[in-house]
């Protein structure tokens, strides 16, 4: 079946099977920034935004996003660069595999909350696993990013 949606504001159409998931469709079509860490909605690496809301794309059927607006990290390059700087300042960057998911979830968090509490931040990002950083420095980096203009 044919499914059309806006990928970073550009209308795209893909031929997909009804049971194909968005992460697979996008990677198959060259959007390799989508990282699949578990393919069962547990790790958050494949996070992207649908209508500005972070979701795990490994578990969204491509057929269900007909006509919707999808944002991947290609659509938020400057914000990703800012977050990367904050990660570096805290020593939070390592293998990078979870980073794209974090970029999107942190960007959405920043848009959704003005001055989030620690609890709100943690609740927002807790679905994104990271096995490298030890998490604490990452949280500090994310807080610094949220304070940036």
């Amino acid at each position: 079946m044919k499914v059309s949606f806006y990928l970073n504001d550009v209308l795209v159409s893909y031929d997909v099977k009804p049971h194909e998931y968005l992460a697979a469709t996008l990677r198959r079509n060259g959007v390799k920034s989508i990282k699949v860490g578990c393919n069962e909605s547990s790790c958050g690496s494949c996070t992207l935004l649908i209508e500005n809301k972070p979701v795990m794309s490994c578990s969204v059927l491509t057929a269900s996003v007909e006509g919707k607006h999808i944002t991947t990290v290609e659509g938020i390059q400057e914000e990703a660069a800012k977050l990367s700087r904050c990660f570096s300042n805290e020593g939070a960057d390592q293998c990078g595999f979870c980073n794209v998911g974090y970029a999107l979830v942190c960007y959405a968090l920043k848009k959704e909350y003005k001055n989030p509490t620690d609890e709100e931040i943690i609740n927002y990002i807790v679905g994104n696993l990271c096995r490298c950083s030890g998490l604490y420095s990452q949280l500090k980096a994310i807080k610094a990013y949220l304070k940036e203009e």
Binding site: S41, S42, I50, V55, M56, N123, I125
Partner: peptide
């Protein structure tokens, strides 16, 4: 409900 997984799960 807030105790279930992360936001990227609960949005689905």
């Amino acid at each position: 409900v807030r105790e279930i997984m992360g936001v990227n799960f609960r949005n689905l």
